[in-house]
Design a protein around this nucleic acid. Structure first.
Lengths: 158, 158
DNA sequence: CTTGACCCGATAGTAGCTACAGGGTTTTGA
DNA sequence: TCAAAACCCTGTAGCTACTATCGGGTCAAG
């Protein structure tokens, strides 16, 4: 199986496969004489596993570790459980933060009266006004929850 | 006001301010003879506006546009309204996707029986099993909703 | 006059791809 | 038989919104 076929079968981009190989998630396949990658069915299985984990929004580093762990059948699976559980908690936290954010934006969106000029745009006014009250960020205003979104946006990087 | 003070007052990193300046979000301030940045109070106001928009998870490109628009008081505010509304819709979609994801992960997490070895780890088994059923991605399986999360993760980039 | 806190610009790194550029190879069909 | 199209290769740069580090300059206190 050449790279294009594997990519099509798994529904990913060819570039992504080369990227996974570079990152050590997919074993380097055999090569034809002309240097083309030649994949075995096992590669497709592994790739499907990776994509499934990614569809659950797991970090590639975690996926790589799960792949390692799954090789050693006699190893303890505590780490697997912990990883999945920790990931669930992060997703939970992020979803909660987005819920707060959604409410704030909905309120902002509702400010849009029929003012057609920027001069009396309720949204801009609200944005500027809120910005004033928020300076110094040393109190727990309504934006405190949302502020965590930006941080949470990077949770996979930790 | 030097950069350190402005950063402290707005609760951001000094580097972030230099970044905002480079990106055209903050006007270049005056400089002292030795080249230090010297900010006016207006810079703090503007910065607070930016940080408030960011706390609502808006993209910097959108913030930059809002700043431009807010200068011309006689301009139409349709674009402001549209931007905020579109942003709200993206947040809504992402939150919904995360909700689906959360359910899937919770189910996965519940698979963790008391098997202590990888060989009989319910989670790994489930991950591998699900990956099999998912190949080709041409049907709408339970992961279809979650798959949008990864895509949604990049919605700001579009 | 030295120590430490501050500041400068430039560069590189983060996650997970995606999109080139500038080549070589294989397949198809006229 | 040969040309075009479709595929493949490596390497590099781009995306977001920062953050960190480097090597050096400046300033205030003691």
């Amino acid at each position: 199986m050449r790279i294009g076929e594997l990519a099509a079968r798994a529904g990913v981009d060819v570039q992504t496969l080369r990227y996974y190989e570079r990152e050590g998630l997919l074993d380097p396949p055999a090569r034809t004489r002309s240097g083309y990658r030649s994949y075995a069915p096992a590669h497709l299985e592994r790739l499907n596993f990776i994509r499934h984990c990614r569809s659950l929004d797991m970090a590639l580093a975690d996926v790589r570790r799960l792949l390692e762990l799954s090789k050693d059948k006699s190893a303890s699976c505590d780490e697997v459980n912990a990883k999945v559980h920790a990931h669930l908690e992060r997703v939970r936290a992020k979803r909660a933060a987005l819920q707060v954010l959604e409410r704030q934006l909905a309120a902002l969106d509702a400010q849009c009266a029929s003012g057609h000029r920027v001069a009396d745009c309720g949204i801009l006014e609200e944005l500027i006004h809120a910005a004033h009250g928020e300076a110094c960020a040393c109190h727990a205003g309504p934006a405190a929850g949302a502020r965590e979104v930006s941080a949470a946006d990077r949770w996979r990087g930790r």
